[in-house]
Design a protein around this nucleic acid. Structure first.
Lengths: 358, 358
DNA sequence: CTGTTAGCGCTTTCAA
DNA sequence: TTGAAAGCGCTAACAG
């Protein structure tokens, strides 16, 4: 094996080569107001450093400055979720832009590991902690630590905890209004139930009821007849729910469907195909999530509500950094809008080309 | 805001409280062969440490021992891919079990950031590097660094680079054999083409041709008539490919379909539904990937070939750790088998209940 | 403007 | 078996 032993060059080496003291080197790399060095010296040092391939040793710097420029992320399986990784990726990118790095601890759906994970992150002296949940939940309290924490894709009962989460109600409202604007007067929602004991990766996820209630409220205020079918979140759940909603005479059949997830929407498309219903001709479908490689690629492409995963990751890091800097943060709870993405699975109902019903 | 300023307790504090020297504390936490302390002293120290809530400072320890117990992971968007996150999560878990932690740098599909990312990881003194690709690719050479590197979900032309990747050919062979064993004599594969300039997240992905060639070879050796339709990897691609394969008289129609991805398989299911074909009655479908919340939840549940993402993550970490420890690694390239997962989308073809064709 | 010096908190020879 | 002292590589008072 090749010799990996190329000894790293230290500040002292650069100092000697440039004929200055280690302090000067430090100053060259950490510009400051007062007690500065002359531009020429600085340039000479930087050149020498470059020539020697000098890189400040981050560990030594961290020990001295008591800040590691790193942010810990503990996730209850976000990293392994179908789209939650976007949150992590966006957070990592935002952190990097600020000279920080993300340390990841995935709980892998085993809560008892939480304390240990946080402990480890504390030992590693991370500057702050982001706690990301896979499903949108309300925690009775944030993780116990002396570090600044921001909750991502979840929030806490205590109002002073820092958190970013999706505004599900806003998204569901957008969905109904889109359908209503198109002229639909009878719609049904394939809803995801709230299940405190459900599959671990969806435990206590409250997006379902949030979306349902907002959808219902919006329907009421727009005078649209709305029905709810409670069910699960996956393709098969959507399929079965849609089957029961659609397998009936056309004058009783909804013309618009709002699925609690894109996966459920795909199931609904399958059901429609089985029933010989054209989308969007006979039936409009709106999903939720804007899941990658999914919503965009259904046939026809799915109109849906986008979950702001990337923005949550960015905001979480921004808040964490602000907290570290000791800034006062005004909006400690940030609900990010879930915006409508119009594609081709929605259209005016057929009858609207002739005359509205009733 | 609560006082976050609870000063950390140091080894010296414990030493004083226990009436020993800092050295003794260090010994208590780092058991060694020689130069040891008495069991009683050790116990007393440990108790005191516990009582005071002492945690060795990882940064100081790293500086001293020149090892950070951390592994850098640079990904060309694995973290943000629909299932690649599993690789990261598994790696993180495996690393944690060995007292290491993962530092993540997501390139976010911008290659020019690669050098900078690796640089940053070097500065942070990670012990080793895992380079994970989203699609299975063959790199002309691994990333340039003095650190030990292992390639995950990709490999390099040079034979001595460490890598773990899926054995696509094995998986495709399994798929055909499953179909053949069921009695299918006419099958078609919805293949994913190799596209060196394709969408960035799939650039140079070589899984398509690998799967196709193996499938074809297996078909030949089993005397099965196989057709290929080249196309893309997503739901819509599978839909269109399946439409062209299936929209014909039943005596010319394949009875089995092998889709290059689970997404493509979902598209094929949609097409089958449109055409009034029953799965698996009229048509058996096999996917590839075993994508989470997808393969398991189609209607009917999809028989597929599982990509070993979790195992890749684990093996990558194991290899990295072995390399750090200076162990000689024998199989430097590890192709992990993609195993068949039988669910309900495959069955014997209808005619086999009566008589085989021809 | 520049250099000397003293740590950050820990590990580890070496001597007691 | 235990402790004193040096030092990992860097930063930041304080002098010069």
């Amino acid at each position: 094996m090749a010799s990996h032993t190329r000894r790293r060059v230290r500040a002292a080496d650069v100092a000697k080569a440039a004929g200055v003291s280690p302090t000067a080197v430090s100053f060259a790399f950490n510009p400051r107001e007062t007690g500065n060095i002359s531009p020429e010296t600085k340039q000479r040092i930087l050149d020498t450093a470059e020539r020697l391939g000098y890189e400040p040793n981050h560990v030594a710097r961290s020990l001295r400055s008591q800040t590691t420029h790193s942010i810990g992320m503990v996730t209850d399986s976000v990293a392994s979720s179908p789209f939650g990784g976007r949150l992590l990726a966006a957070a990592a990118e935002r952190a990097e832009a600020a000279g920080h790095i993300m340390l990841v601890m995935d709980l892998h759906s085993r809560d008892e590991r939480e304390a240990a994970a946080i402990h480890e992150l504390e030992r590693r002296q991370v500057d702050a902690l982001i706690y990301a949940s896979m499903g949108f939940r309300i925690l009775s309290s944030g993780p116990r630590t002396y570090l600044p924490v921001v909750l991502a894709n979840c929030t806490a009962e205590r109002e002073d905890e820092l958190s970013v989460y999706p505004d599900d109600a806003y998204g569901a409202t957008r969905a109904l209004e889109h359908l209503a604007d198109l002229g639909h007067r009878r719609v049904t929602m394939l809803s995801g139930h709230w299940n405190p004991l459900g599959p671990r990766d969806n435990q206590g996820n409250i997006s379902g009821p949030l979306r349902r209630d907002a959808f219902l409220a919006a329907a009421r205020s727009r005078g649209v007849e709305a029905t709810i079918i409670e069910g699960g979140w996956d393709i098969d759940d959507g399929y079965h729910a849609a089957m029961s909603a659609l397998d009936r005479p056309s004058d009783q059949r909804p013309t618009g469907l709002f699925a609690v997830t894109d996966r459920s929407a795909v199931g609904a498309m399958l059901a429609a195909a089985r029933l010989g219903l054209d989308v969007p001709g006979d039936l409009s479908i709106v999903g939720f999530d804007d899941q990658e490689k999914m919503a965009e690629n259904t046939v026809p492409p799915l109109t849906t509500i986008a979950l702001p995963h990337a923005r949550m990751g960015e905001e979480a890091v921004a808040m964490a950094l602000a907290a570290v800097a000791g800034e006062t943060i005004v909006d400690r709870r940030r609900a990010l809008p879930c915006e409508l993405v119009v594609r081709e699975s929605t259209a005016p109902p057929r009858w609207s080309l002739t005359a509205p019903p009733r």
